[in-house]
Design a protein around this nucleic acid. Sequence first.
RNA 1: GGCGCCGUAGCCAAGUGGUAAGGCCGCAGACUGCAAAUCUGCCAUUCAUCGGUUCGAUUCCGAUCGGCGCCUCCA
Length: 484
Amino acid sequence: MVRSISLFNTLARKVEPVAGASDQIRIYTCGPTVYNFAHIGNLRTFLFQDLMKRTLRAAGRNVRHCMNITDVEDKIIRDSQKDLPADATNEQRHGAMSTLTVRYTQAFLEDLETLRIQRPDVMPRATDHIPHMIRLVKDLEAKGLAYAREGSVYYRIAAFPDYGALAHLDKEGMRQGASEGASGDADEYERDAASDFVLWKAVKDGEPWWDSPWGPGRPGWHIECSAMGIEHLGEHVDIHTGGVDLIFPHHENEIAQSEGCLGHRWVDAWVHGEFLMVEGEKMSKSLGNFFTLRDLIEKGVDPIAFRFAMQSNHYRKLYNFSFEGLKAAENALKRIRAFRRRMEDEGAPAGQGEWKEALDPRQRLAQAREEYWAAMGDDLNTPEALAALFTLISDLNAHDDRVALGREERDEVLAFLDETDSIFAAWPKETGSLDAQVEALIEARKAAKTAKDWPEADRLRHAIQALGIVLEDRKDGSVGWRRA
RNA sequence: GGCGCCGUAGCCAAGUGGUAAGGCCGCAGACUGCAAAUCUGCCAUUCAUCGGUUCGAUUCCGAUCGGCGCCUCCA
């Protein structure tokens, strides 16, 4: 079944259905600049993209996802070259740069794995696409959209009338001084206009370089995404994503480059994720509230709780990260996971007590599924989608307390949990078995319980807990377990 | 100066021109050898403030207060 999904398109400034014509949705994502570990703000963006991609896939669409790795850039050069002698060869410079980027690319891939972020189908590296970029720049130059100055090449914004359409910049209204002083780039006065941006940078002392028609140099920041996007997804991209900060200038410049070269619309929908604050303040190294995933794990945070905290809030809303919020996410997950275990087990004998109202479990499940998809389809409204899941859990728990659900009904509920987990990846079927030592302790405790030797039963419960297993006694006398 | 976002209970948060979803925390019961899980009930006469439009506004309009973003470093 293919369900309709709509997303907020920054270009149109409204929620629009994801193009239905193409049988494969092509997504391009601006990936990490690999000069350090990703911080939780970066990761929020990658989690939002994972949410979007998984939702499209769960909705029955085919997705091809390309995420680039930026492995040549100012900060990478700064950090990788600082210990090299002034007379280092170009090969040594490239080697040092590569050593740094390979290390952090590896770290990034590990973070994706830890957070259960699906690997993109292609992850091209900028340094593998220098010829593609040069070709693109030459093409822009031939079309009169770019010009060379002293070994560098700049994009002529005045030649691209639609410039500013994505960021909705009004050239007249822009503060004159806004761009002055913001850049200490010495190249600035070589440009025809202050807002023209660089496509290819002439080499400077102490930098690695590549040969080009304009002499030795390196690519500008924006050109890599145009070149790799076109190379790996073709001349048409359905969805292009990144953080809100990339809207301008990065994505605006990508449009100018790609559309200038292709001569037609390049991207249908631009979808941007909001930023993260930390405990009410902007995250920054100087405030000491700057966290990587590894920092959180060191503090004992379950990475999946972080994943859930990010994804249970709307992606276009500023999220105020806090450890209290993480705790709340962890507790909410416990409820869903406990419900899954309950559905996996057989129903307990009917209990007593008040009951709000009788319901038809199958009909109730169908209703929850509809509500869930309506919310997810409406610009990934996860708070509302999860509300549908939580009310289902409440209702079915209450029902199961009075009238135990049958095996088939339980399996249908489990199928829905799998369906939702295919997006949230936080309440999977728990696999794995207990080792013999724990099994033996559980058997010993059962014997103690039968003998009503409560002190011994308690002692064994604690011993088992010390091994990381929490026991759950049930009404029918059986004993369930979960990992702490 | 230009463009734009946000302000809903202790915390997180959805939402609509028709009278406030959901989660976390908390409280009181039920069940229970203990524990866990679960259930039942309670937890915003009110949606920053003040006006306006309307039969009716949290939802539309205006103003005010407060927080924030972008206008060529940035997820």
